[in-house]
Design a protein around this nucleic acid. Structure first.
Length: 874
RNA sequence: GGGCGGUUAGCUCAGUGGUAGAGCACCGGCUUUACACGCCGGCUGUCACAGGUUCGAAUCCUGUACCGCCCACCA
């Protein structure tokens, strides 16, 4: 159940404990363990779905350290979580660790100086060297995975400490890891279900391939990089020396893989050649000249060479023109040995082809290229010198060398046929900010194939599949043996399928396991199912799924967000959540994304220690949803000052809080009503995820509250005008403090909790979010006339305050010089308000007497200003 | 090539039809019993540019420039 309302008036003196000199130092260390002990952030799993707010937290990649961007975006989520909790929701706010996948493998390799060799047996006694050696030590797959688990668990503890220091209101009992057994089970179960419905399938096909990691990669993991390259103009001869045609290519090393030339069907220059054959230089292979509309007459010489496979267009041409395969690039990116003259490698001159080719074998593509160019130059088939250009080349986003296209057996999840349904799912979501939906639609509309989910790696979720081995020793891929749901999670490399014995592994007539693991996104696309305990705790799932919020950064809309929508659509015929809040990036002062490679990353812990968690959160909260924000320690200092101000203002407000009375003074009533309007406004802003506005409006109010209102009522609350005035001021002070603290609580959880503990029971973070009506009801008379009168009086007081301060500032007087008389000119109706607040004004401005006269009808003017000690008029 | 966002004070940014704003920085002043980690005051602008709509445009429309990001079958 939600917390009972907080009484806004009254103060229990026995409960009140005010520190002599409040300070921010040590608040994190003080409150972190208390929150943990009290369980204030624990998810209440018995609440009905309508009272639950479930967050699909982004699991940070555990492959090093958190950076300031994490602090930024995780704070945004925490703001929403805290708001919803105070609104009375049971908030499911878990943390996940993405420890699965390539980044972890790479880190483990470097950290321990090892490499994984799946052919080795497990060594139970293996210990990594103290320091990584020059040459990587080969270890078995189980040993490698142990090391991954060991390092990630160390990293995760460091991450957790930082997030706690930052004040994230995570329920740490809900933590999961993408390599954890739960995540593995969900990943395998979802896969098995897709397989049964034929929504997952396996096929041997050309696939984007990273030659360093030696794995397939998905379309979503590509990025283009501008690279230097060169056009090579190369001569293909017509048979019997009847002429030649010249193509331009950036990849001459693929000439041995050439299977055809292609030009646009309408291209006049090449129409006479269509249907004829040409001969490749150096290798003497006869290839046809074909027509296809994808060929661009403007590009190069207008006629292109089709290879196995130079780029994705080659794949299209190969498929649509029914071309043969002549692959030369192998999985490690080098050229494989070829027997020229053998079937599929027909040539007019096998000896010559072999001579040229043998020089290329086992060279990388780049090295083979320069060798081929030398040979072409020598043979006279290169027209002119290579013409340097810069062009976009496809890379795996984590890779170092251009992708190749390699034919291999891979698992796919059907995607492309659901394009329209997925677009509709995207429209079901509420996007914050709304324009981020464009990125999603852009991506979905640009999809060009199904999702390749298999990776030839080790530290990941294995496919729960085996294959029978025929008596001929060949794997029967068309008869996969799928693990039963009850067996999951399972590692098929150690487990044995039903009906087989362990010693049949790898034997003719026996079985073999699928050697691949799932793409890390194939697991993280199931974070809602993992968090909500799909097919594990049906009751929990029913109370939490579909979730309420997916917070994430905009750069992974095409991967994490899209994949999650896809999986949920396929498995549950539903969106996975109803809101997607997209956070921006942290930019360094040069407006570039902060990143490790730029050497400008600041350690988050140092920031937290220097500025305090509340100060750092203040900076993060000022970044509006979706907007990239400059890294600005100055804003953290401002936030820290705000937190200190909260401490001191609270101490003042509570410092003489008796007597309490009815809120009867117009100035008090006006302040209370203004605060109520603020509550209404910021509640709506928070509801629409505009936390930055909430903070900004609350802060502006608070600062004015301190500088004007507190100054105005200072004397009265000390009793200068009798008990009724003091009671009114004190009641207004405690009520407004209670409300302001709660408005600030999501942003400044430490300082607000500290102040709350001085005078309230329980945690402020379990307290209800303020309601405007409760505040308004503290004011007895809320008729329009009274409200307008109160506002006019408050405004009058603020204006007089400002005018006299200005005079005093211009007179440059020390404060100890009392001001004997201030003469104010103003419109008649305004002057009539003076007596109501004159005592407050005299007290706060230290003016002995006011004299008012009718003057300028539009504004008030201080025309007379006298101090006891005469000062020079300016 | 397609799409999205941005361009407002020296800096970081609010402001979406009605007299251009805040914080920081800068300048001047003030020990004031909550706070010198403070307070008071001051200075600061062709709202990128050009057209258009309107009584009125930073705001709406069209176009341009520049910055950033996303996407695309670039031989």
């Amino acid at each position: 159940m939600s917390a009972p309302p907080i009484p806004l008036t009254g103060l229990d003196p026995a409960r009140l404990t005010l520190p002599e000199k409040p300070a921010l130092e040590g608040l994190e260390a003080r409150w972190m363990p208390r929150w943990e002990e009290s369980g204030v952030y624990r998810f209440d799993r018995l609440r009905p779905r309508s009272e639950v707010f479930a967050i699909d937290t982004p699991p940070p990649t555990v492959s090093g350290s958190l950076h300031v961007g994490h602090v930024f975006s995780f704070t945004h989520t925490d703001l929403i979580a805290r708001f919803q909790r105070m609104r009375g929701k049971a908030v499911l706010y878990p943390m996940g660790w993405d420890d699965n996948g390539l980044p972890t493998e790479r880190r483990v390799q470097n950290y321990y100086g090892v490499r994984c060799d799946p052919s080795l047996p497990y060594d139970p006694g293996f210990a990594p060297p103290e320091k990584p050696g020059k040459h990587a030590i080969a270890v078995s797959r189980p040993n490698f995975i142990e090391l991954c688990a060991r390092l990630t668990s160390e990293d995760e503890q460091v991450f957790e400490r930082l997030f706690k220091y930052l004040g994230l209101s995570v329920d740490w009992s809900m933590t999961y890891a993408t390599i954890g057994l739960r995540a593995q089970r969900v990943s395998q179960l979802a896969f098995v279900r897709l397989l049964a419905r034929q929504l997952a399938y396996q096929v041997e096909a050309p696939t984007l391939w990273d030659v360093d990691f030696r794995t397939a990669v998905a379309q979503a993991e590509l990025e283009d990089r501008e690279m230097p390259g060169a056009y090579h103009r190369i001569r293909f001869t017509l048979p019997a020396e009847t002429g030649f045609v010249e193509i331009e290519t950036t990849r001459p090393e693929l000439i041995p893989a050439c299977v055809a030339l292609v030009a646009h069907p309408d291209d006049q220059r090449y129409q006479p050649l269509f249907g004829r054959e040409v001969v490749t230089p150096l290798f003497g292979v006869r290839v046809p000249v074909l027509a296809h509309p994808l060929a661009d007459p403007q590009k190069g010489s207008g006629i292109a060479m089709i290879c196995t496979f130079g780029d994705l267009t080659d794949v299209t041409w190969w498929r649509e023109l029914n071309l043969p395969v002549r692959a030369v690039i192998q999985a490690d990116g080098t050229l494989q040995p070829v027997q020229w003259g053998a079937p599929g490698w027909d040539t007019a001159d096998a000896a010559r082809a072999q001579r040229h080719y043998d020089g290329l074998v086992r060279l990388s593509a780049a090295k083979a290229r320069s060798k081929v160019v030398d040979d072409l130059r020598a043979s006279g088939d290169l027209n002119g010198e290579p013409r340097p250009i810069t062009h976009a080349v496809k890379f795996y986003e984590k890779g170092d060398r251009p992708l190749e296209i390699i034919t291999s057996r891979q698992w796919f999840i059907r995607t492309i046929e659901f394009r329209d349904a997925l677009l509709a799912r995207g429209r079901e979501l509420r996007w914050h900010p709304a324009y981020m939906q464009n990125r999603f639609e852009n991506w979905v509309n640009g999809l060009n194939g199904d999702w390749c989910v298999s990776r030839q790696r080790f530290f990941g979720v294995p496919f729960p599949v085996w294959y029978p081995i025929g008596e001929d020793g060949r794997l029967q891929y068309d008869r996969p043996i799928v693990a039963g749901e009850a067996q999951l999670p399972i590692d098929p490399s150690t487990a044995v399928p039903d009906g087989y014995q362990p010693d049949q592994r790898g034997q003719p007539g026996g079985f073999a396991h699928d050697p691949d693991v799932m793409d890390t996104w194939a697991t993280s696309s199931l974070t809602p199912q993992i968090v909500c305990r799909w097919e594990q705790e049906p009751d929990f799932f029913a109370r939490t799924f579909p979730m309420d919020l997916r917070p994430q950064a905009h750069d992974i809309i095409r991967t994490w967000l899209f994949d999650t929508v896809l999986r949920s659509h396929l498995e549950h015929d539903s969106v996975p959540w109803t809101n997607a809040a997209i956070s921006g990036w942290v930019l360094d002062p040069d407006r570039k994304k902060m990143s490790k490679s730029k050497g400008n990353v600041v350690t988050p812990l140092a920031l937290l220690e220097e500025h305090g968690a509340d100060g750092v959160r203040y900076w993060a909260a000022s970044g509006r949803p979706g907007t990239d924000t400059a890294f600005d320690p100055n804003q953290m200092k401002v936030g820290r000052r705000l937190a200190i101000k909260v401490l001191n203002a609270s101490r003042f407000a509570l410092g003489a809080a008796a007597p309490q009375g009815a809120i009867v003074e117009p100035v008090d009533r006006a302040m209370i009503r203004t605060l109520a309007a603020l509550v209404e406004e910021v509640t709506a802003a928070f509801e629409s995820y505009d936390y930055a506005r909430v903070l900004q409006r609350t802060e502006t109010f608070f600062w004015r509250f301190c500088d004007d209102y507190l100054e105005l009522v200072k004397g009265r609350r000390y009793g200068e005008q009798g008990p009724e005035g003091a009671g009114s001021a004190n009641a207004a002070l405690t009520a407004s403090l209670s409300v302001l603290l709660r408005l600030f609580a999501p942003f400044l959880p430490f300082v607000t909790e500290e102040v709350w503990s001085w005078w309230q029971e329980g945690s402020i973070h379990a307290a209800p979010w303020p309601v405007a009506d409760e505040l308004v009801s503290l004011v007895a008379d809320n008729s329009d006339a009274t409200r307008e009168a109160d506002e006019a009086i408050y405004q009058w007081a603020a204006e007089v305050l400002f005018e006299v301060r200005k005079q005093r500032s211009e007179a440059k007087q020390p404060l100890k010089v009392p001001i004997s008389r201030v003469t104010v000119q103003a419109p008649l109706e305004a002057i009539r308000l003076m007596p109501i607040v004159e005592a407050d004004l005299r007290s706060s401005l230290r003016v002995q007497a006011f004299e008012a006269s009718v003057g300028d009808p539009r504004r008030i003017v201080v025309v007379g200003y006298e101090a006891v000690a005469p000062v020079e008029q300016k």
